[in-house]
Nucleic acid binder design. Structure first.
Length: 296
DNA sequence: CCCCAGGGCCATA
DNA sequence: TATGGCCATGGG
């Protein structure tokens, strides 16, 4: 079963696929040269699907029999690849800065790749705190393999991220063998319990309307600081002005591109971002992208 | 052996 | 409110 979504202007599936993979040990989807395949739980339906491209369209192919939520799946993919955003105003702003104009050409059509599931976004950003990304991906894989669910298809296992209910029932001792630190285990279990109890949800956060209120609400939670809250703001809540303050990758990119200090002041960062109102998350994403090899 | 990695908590002053 | 110790492990 197969259906199409029209590609927006300024969209490069190839760039998006590169960012999805980046040679890391990703556990939640499989990326090859032309497609990404993953399983998700959509309103209680287990959906295994592939996204590829053909002509002016993105092609979504449903690979399992549960084809119940086609409209929801279209919306999911559109949000995952941020298809609804018109990047033209962003590119015009980038072109005004001689140091940044190259981002438009080199990474043209790259979208913010979302993490649609709030629990996954929170766990991922907590796991990734203050360790190298390679190790963070290994920790995520262990968490997913131990406590997530698996969908077999053509002898390939497709993994789904654990549910809050599953993690909420664990003790720190059960995460220690995965080499997740005691502190991070406490944070993740705590978040799981909040979500399992219905005290935290994506829907409720989005209902706050004001981005500042959403970030403030997240920061109240133990284990979630400025960096984590804004990372989740970018990747899950789709807040256009979220900047993960304190991010070393951001510092590194700005050191390379702008010659900033290796640990610049927060005020320096804010002044740099100031002209990019509504595009601060996108600029962060492109600066992160600049840390990897170029496809052209 | 050193320092750093897509940070945040907590005690202290 | 600002600062420093600490967490824990892999990579360079």
């Amino acid at each position: 079963m197969e259906f199409n979504i029209e590609k927006p202007k300024n969209f490069s599936f190839r760039e998006c696929l590169f960012f999805l993979d980046r040679d890391y040990d990703e556990s939640l989807y499989v990326v090859d040269e032309t497609a990404v395949t993953r399983a998700i739980n959509l309103n209680g339906h287990l959906m295994l699907f592939k996204v590829s491209e053909k002509g002016g369209n993105l092609v979504i192919t449903i690979l399992n029999k549960s084809a119940g939520e086609i409209d929801a799946l279209k919306k999911y993919v559109a949000s995952w690849f941020d298809l609804q955003t018109d990047l033209e105003p962003y590119y015009q702003l980038l072109r005004k800065d001689p140091d940044l104009a190259f981002l438009v050409d080199r990474f043209h059509g790259l979208r913010i790749i979302g993490i649609e599931d709030l629990f996954e976004a929170l766990c991922w950003s907590i796991l990734g705190q203050q360790i190298n990304l390679k190790f963070a991906y290994r920790l995520k894989r262990r968490l997913v393999e131990h406590f997530g669910t698996t969908l077999q298809h053509n002898n390939t296992p497709y993994l789904l991220f654990p549910t809050p209910d599953r993690i909420a029932s664990l003790s720190v001792d059960q995460l220690k063998p995965l080499q997740i630190s005691t502190r991070k285990s406490e944070y993740i279990i705590g978040v799981a319990q909040l979500m399992a109890e219905g005290k935290l949800s994506k829907k409720d956060l989005l209902a706050l309307i004001e981005p500042e209120a959403m970030i403030e609400e997240l920061i109240k939670i133990r284990g979630i600081g400025q960096w984590t809250a804004n990372y989740v703001g970018m990747k899950c809540l789709k807040l256009p002005n979220s900047i993960p303050h304190g991010d070393v990758g951001l510092y590194h990119a700005l050191h390379q591109i702008k010659g900033f200090d290796k640990r610049p002041e927060k005020a320096t960062i804010e002044a740099f971002f100031q002209p990019f109102d509504q595009w601060k998350a996108y600029l962060t994403h492109y600066l992160w992208r600049s840390l990897y090899k170029s496809l052209i």
